[in-house]
Design a binder for these strands. Structure first.
Lengths: 215, 215
DNA sequence: CCCTCGCTAGACAAATTTGACTACCTGGAG
DNA sequence: CTCCAGGTAGTCAAATTTGTCTAGCGAGGG
């Protein structure tokens, strides 16, 4: 699965009640259009889809307060919250290769209690190591290494990435165990949404190198 | 873009002439269904699409020699070869975050002359470093670090991944410069396709951990 | 001989994703 | 007052991807 459902559920949840454009703006604020498939079409599609599936509740609302077509406001349901937490836990532990999945989960990890987050991250390390050993065992030819030619570089790359991911996760575990950040039930949460009417400081002028045009 | 077009073009090219099922089998042999979106539907779709675009030439062929519906054989055209090399070069240099893109390119890198592959890989390192510095500059808040809360971990993760990818690429460059592998124009190429009728040694019994079902 | 199993080769509907486009309103320039 | 740029809130067709289904054929058991 892609990260979009987690992102959209998380955005709606932080607002309490949000319309599509608000979600879209939050995701842009988080830079999600850069590192995930959070484009307008996907966002609106996910909202409608999840509303149909009972994860979100859609309120039909009168014309917008600020121009544009009438808008629909969404609220997360109990089943939606359940799904949100399920996805969050899954994405924190899964070694998914696609970094957008982990990135999205990191953004929301503080919605869990500190102890649970730690347990999930440790599970993540375990899974990476398991994956690593299954790959090395499987792709090590009996007739000695080197039989694979340049194809061996592929496995080499995978293993290197896995090791690097595990190492980084261990570092995160230490920081979290050392008291960093504010987790669920520990006081004022860190909120990363734009208030109604607040300007997006990162609205344009994006971070990445595909910026040779414009400006 | 995803890796599928490069994979399919590369598979057809190595065979000279191939039908969909052969391509599908090669990709499974390479484990591509594990690390990319190379599922039957996508493969057949890519074949048809690229035939329509003139990158492949479709021959309608009589009923298959081994049961099943009649099959279509494909051959790569000049424009297809051009596209293949373009994609290959692009995927070797692009820091795309999605590892399937690089993985596919690694599998075919020996289709280029050694010197060119080296140049592309060096360009890759340069791009990663550029990306890294644009991200760190952009997301370092003026009012000191730590303002980002746990969101800073996301950037931390990206930068760590980029560094790890650059380091690995440097290692590959050294190995290639040191004479490893057989590149274009250097004699018998390493071929990674299944001959007609050859059994796929990795047909089942897949490497990854999502194997708790079956068997 | 008949029947089922498994392989071959692909088709297909449904879901998702992409990228471009629309329509409405507001504020300010002229 | 009028016009137009720009923000708001989406829609839509087309492309792609996913997952499942089909139909033909040969091998082998009973």
């Amino acid at each position: 699965m892609s990260a979009i459902r987690l992102l959209v559920l998380g955005a709606v949840r932080q607002h309490g009640r949000a319309h599509g454009y608000q979600v879209r703006n939050d995701l842009e604020y988080w830079g999600a259009h850069e590192w995930s498939n959070a484009k307008p079409g996907s966002i609106y599609h996910a909202l409608k889809q999840m509303a149909k599936q009972g994860l979100l509740l859609a309120h039909e609302i009168a014309p917008s307060t600020a121009g544009g077509p009438p808008r629909v406001e969404y609220e997360i349901t109990a089943r939606g919250t359940e799904e949100y937490l399920t996805l969050l836990r899954a994405y924190l532990t899964a070694y998914d290769q696609r970094p957008d999945v982990l990135t999205a989960a990191l953004g929301f990890m503080v919605d869990l209690p500190r102890e649970e987050a730690l347990a999930l991250l440790e599970e993540r390390v375990r899974r990476i190591e398991e994956w690593r050993s299954s790959v090395t065992e499987y792709y090590t030819p009996e007739d000695g290494p080197g039989q694979l030619g340049h194809i061996g570089e592929i496995m080499n790359f995978w293993v290197h990435s896995a090791d690097s991911g595990a190492e980084w996760t261990r570092g995160l575990i230490e920081r979290v165990r050392g008291g960093a950040y504010t987790f669920a039930g520990e006081g004022d949460p860190f909120v990363g949404v734009l208030a109604e009417g607040q300007e997006n400081p990162f609205g344009s002028g994006r971070p990445h190198a595909d910026d040779q045009d414009a400006r």
